[in-house]
């Protein structure tokens, strides 16, 4: 019985959210407020259960006193409630931004910059490695390597800010923006397909979990 009620609530809220496709209306407003409220409350408990308890309270109970430092920083954020001491909250914010910026430098170097350079160091002359699959052969053809190198270099030139996009640099940047737009086009199609699969999932729920059982119960 509980499951049936759950399915009806979920189906009702789904339809209320879908009603936004027509225009803003009281049903959408209701679903929106329920969604925002419930998710905010859920986040509150989630933060307590998955962050504060295992990473602060439990270690303190086990006498791991080092966690007091981030604990104090967290408590300092709460001073925002009191206008006279609100400035104290700037310290943990500053630490967060500073540490995050430092960590991001290494992440970007390791995860983006160096792999990108390595994957662009490709041979564009010499015999092509042949495979049985013609698509694989095309992909491994030196001409494809040339396209990758030209695409990477011209895209980097597009994001070069120290010179105006005129003359040679302007022409190179235009080639770069063509590569960027081709990549975006491919990404657009790929991502739209993923979104459609989300929609299919929702409609699948409405038909199989809600409408079909309802129809069967009415016909029996």
């Amino acid at each position: 019985m509980g499951q049936i009620i759950g399915v009806w609530i979920a189906a009702g809220l789904t339809l209320m959210i879908f009603s936004f496709l027509y225009k803003d209306n009281p049903f959408y407003k209701f679903a929106e407020h329920v969604y925002v409220g419930v998710s905010a409350a859920y986040t509150c408990f989630y933060t307590w259960d998955y962050f504060l308890m295992p990473k602060l309270i439990n270690p303190l109970l086990q006498h791991h006193w080092l966690v007091i430092i981030p604990g104090i920083f967290g408590a300092m954020m709460l001073t925002r409630w009191f206008p006279r001491s609100a400035w104290v909250s700037r310290w943990p914010i500053a630490v967060s931004v500073g540490v995050a910026s430092g960590l991001v430098v290494v992440q970007y170097m390791q995860g983006f910059v160096i792999p990108q350079i390595q994957n662009t160091l490709l041979p564009i002359a010499g015999p092509a490695v042949t495979f049985n699959n013609p698509i694989t052969n095309l992909w491994n053809h030196p001409l494809n390597n040339l396209i990758i190198i030209v695409g990477t270099v011209t895209t980097l030139v597009y994001f070069y800010f120290s010179k105006k996009h005129k003359g040679f640099i302007g022409g190179t940047a235009k080639v770069g923006i063509i590569f960027i737009m081709v990549a975006f086009g491919a990404s657009f199609g790929y991502t739209v397909m993923a979104r459609i699969s989300l929609l299919i999932g929702r409609i699948h729920f409405l038909i199989n979990d809600w409408l079909l059982p309802l129809f069967r119960s009415l016909t029996h």
């Binding site: 959408y28 679903a31 929106e32 969604y35 925002v36 905010a40 986040t43």
Partner: peptide, 14 residues
């Protein structure tokens, strides 16, 4: 607003 991805989207839309 909220820390739920689509809850946030619904709220900002509203």
């Amino acid at each position: 607003l909220t820390q739920d991805q689509f809850g946030f989207a619904a709220g900002v839309d509203g």
